[in-house]
């Protein structure tokens, strides 16, 4: 490999890029805990990859590629959460995702009538499962998951510690998974 040719030669697969591809699925699952769907998590993984590619791997001294990968992933999450957390943002996001343009006209996509029925039944099922949670657990889940407050904001609203919120959320996830198991 002679150092001739264009000065910006294509980067070779350094340890970081290799580690990325080995751990891609794990990073995806890590990020997906905080995104609204898998597709958004895929986008974040792609962002992570582009950041790595821009790092010029070969030139960076990477002793612990995994740690660096997860540090970068955690930073991406902070940015992502900051940009989507506010509840007004959540509505905007919906509007974006339920609209598409046909011939330049902005239109709203809506589900077909039979799917409305199915989706409606499922929403009722989900709501019933939440309503059946013990009161504190249900409140934590509702504030954090449904109303989109952070763990700290949820703790403040409930007057409990952040650690307690995490425990409530954990128990709620477990309870809901059992109740809603297909």
């Amino acid at each position: 490999m002679a150092p001739s040719g264009p000065s910006k030669k294509p980067a070779e697969d350094g340890p970081l890029i290799r580690a990325f591809f080995e751990k891609r699925e794990n990073l995806l699952l890590f990020l997906a805990a905080r995104t609204r769907c898998m597709a958004t998590a895929e986008d974040l993984v792609q962002d992570l990859y582009l950041k790595l590619a821009a790092l010029n791997d070969g030139a960076v001294d990477v002793r612990a590629p995994s740690a660096l990968l997860y540090r970068m992933a955690a930073n991406l999450l902070v940015d992502h959460v900051r940009s989507t957390q506010r509840s007004s943002q959540r509505n905007n996001q919906w509007r974006r995702e339920t609209r598409s343009a046909i011939g330049g006209e902005d239109i709203v996509d809506e589900p077909a009538a039979d799917e409305v029925v199915v989706a409606k039944q499922r929403v009722r099922q989900l709501a019933e499962a939440v309503a059946a949670l013990p009161p504190q657990m249900g409140r934590a889940f509702r504030l954090h998951k449904l109303e989109g407050l952070s763990q700290a904001q949820t703790a403040q609203a409930m007057g409990v510690s952040v650690k307690m919120v995490e425990q409530h959320i954990q128990a709620a996830i477990r309870n809901l998974s059992q109740r809603l198991r297909a």
Binding site: L27, S66, L77, Q151, V162, I169, Q170, I173, R174
Partner: peptide
Amino acid sequence: VMAAASAWLARLQRDDVTERDGLDFE
């Protein structure tokens, strides 16, 4: 296993999730 999975999903909701969380998760 389901309890552990729930615990992980809850832990990853932390406002200050870190690389340590990521490595332990992996």
